[in-house]
Every structure is written in C-alpha cells, then in structure tokens.
Design a binder for these strands. Structure first.
Length: 271
DNA sequence: ACCCGTGTTCGCTG
DNA sequence: TCAGCGAACACGGG
C-alpha cells in the first residue's frame, strides 16, 4: 500500500496512539528491543516513506525505524483482541493496547536504532526533499532531471530526487502535469518541470485528502482501498486502463510497463 | 493454475 | 565511476 500519503496516515495514527504512552513489551524480540521496554514515546516523524519513532528511557533516547515496504501497515488492537494476520512485531503499550507491524510480503522493515541516531541509516542519508514537508523546488528538480536520460516516470521513483513518490504518485503527477511518462527526463523544459513539481504536490495532497475523507484515518489503522473495486479507486489514472481520460479529451487511459512497473497515462493530453 | 504487485537492493554491463 | 537494467526478495490476492 505505501507511498507518501499512506505513510503520512500511518504517522498520524501512530502519533495519536502513542502520545504520552510507554512500551510494556515487544514481541518477538528484534535485536536491541530490550532498550524499548519501559521507554516513553517522544516523537513520530515521517521522512519520505520512512517512519522514525523516538522514545526515551531514563534520559536516554532510543529509536525505531520502520518502512512499510509493499504491504506493511501499523495497526492497533484493543486489549485482549487477537493479533491481525501477518503481524510481525507486536508492541504492547501501558494502556493495554497493542500496536502491530503487519507485513504480508515481508519487504518492510522494523529496526531498533540505538540512541535514535537515525542519521546513521544509509536508507535515510541520501533521501531527497520530502514534498509534503519541504515543498518541491522546481529549479532544483530541473537541474537533477537535466542529467538523466531515463524516462521521467522512472526518474521520479528515485528517492534521492524526491522522497516519498512511488509508482502510483509518479503516474498521477505526470498526468496532472500533462507529460508523457516515456519522455527522457533531460528533455523536460524548465516550465514543464514547474508543472511536474506542482503535479507531484497536488497529487500527494489530493490522495491524502481522499484517505482522510474516506475514513482511512480510522481507529485501527486500516486503509482499505486496496480491496476496493475500481469504482472506489481514489486515483485519477492509476489502475484505470481502458477508461476515458478524466479530462474528457477523447483519450483512453493506457497501461504500459516501464522497468517492470505499470505506468498509466493518457496519450492525448500527456505529451 | 497462473499472473500480478503501492518498494528497495544488488549484481552485471557497457 | 556511473547510468541503466533486470533479477531477486517473499507470498498472498485476483
């Protein structure tokens, strides 16, 4: 499920669930998790698709880095409720609730970070600006894209350019910017990158608003659109192959494969 | 049965 | 050294 909007929902949920709470137990026992027992939550940050949780115990900081991978989620269960399917880590809080890191496909990450020194994590070092927190600097983005020959859709997936844009948001942003996903990144003019920068931000904000409006920000943490039908698909073009372009320009949303990943676009308005 | 996949990393090639 | 590509990871869902 997780690109920036889903991870942002997860971060908001975790803030609400953990504020002022203390950890009672962690099961099973991931390396370093002994340092978490008895620790009190201080901060939940999201950087791109990464969740950074800071806790404190007897004046010492300890952190948890969590990445949702393809299928990871953070869920909450009331005292006495069974663990959700695919729960990999269970965190018992002092209010009796359990937070579960569930991850069917196991591409996700849950790692204890001694001293909450997240800056030491290689996965975080090279991340580009986070669109939601930092905005999108079109001039800087243009400078980066100008050096790349690869299709702009694939360039957008590089977390060193923008942190948090994934396969869905890349398709959505390019449609908003009216840009053909196959264009070499370096072929985009400064003005086109300006449109792309606005498209990225608009798409992320739109998706986040859709989640909030649909009750994705629920008490147990479930975001359900994955299981929903096409009619409930919250995206403008992703997953809508064969349907008319929402611009009603006569184009049909087309699915192509780039570097093994699906891309959806309208051949009429995206040039 | 068969194909698909919202992410990241690693090894190979030119 | 580096851009770019394809495979690998892992496993249930449609």
């Amino acid at each position: 499920m997780p690109e920036l909007p889903e991870v942002e929902v997860a971060a908001r949920n975790l803030r609400r669930w953990t504020a002022g709470k203390r950890i009672r137990a962690v099961r099973p026992r991931p390396p370093g998790s002994a340092a978490l027992v008895g620790a009190r939550f201080r901060e939940v940050r999201r950087v791109g698709k990464n969740l950074l949780v800071t806790l404190e115990r007897r004046g010492a900081s300890v952190g948890v880095w969590s990445h949702l991978g393809m299928t990871g989620k953070w869920l909450r269960r009331a005292a006495g409720q069974p663990a959700p399917r695919f729960s990999r880590v269970s965190v018992a809080l002092d209010d009796g609730t359990h937070l579960h890191f569930a991850d069917m496909r196991r591409f996700g990450r849950f790692r204890v970070v001694a001293g909450a020194r997240f800056e030491g994590l290689p996965a975080l070092r090279a991340l580009g600006p986070d669109p939601l927190s930092d905005g999108v600097d079109a001039a800087a983005l243009h400078a980066r894209l100008a050096r790349l020959r690869l299709p702009v859709k694939l360039a957008l997936l590089d977390q060193r350019l923008l942190a948090g844009v994934g396969n869905i948001q890349a398709s959505e942003a390019l449609h908003r910017a009216r840009l053909d996903p196959r264009r070499p990144a370096r072929s985009l003019s400064r003005a086109e990158v300006g449109k792309l920068a606005r498209g990225v931000l608009a798409s992320i904000r739109f998706t986040l608003a859709r989640f909030a409006a649909s009750g994705a920000d629920r008490d147990d943490g479930e975001i359900t659109y994955v299981e929903e039908r096409r009619s409930a698909n919250p995206f403008l073009v992703y997953g809508r192959g064969g349907t008319p372009c929402p611009r009603r320009d006569g184009g049909t949303i087309t699915r192509i494969v780039q570097a093994g990943r699906s891309t959806f676009f309208c051949p009429v308005c995206q040039r």
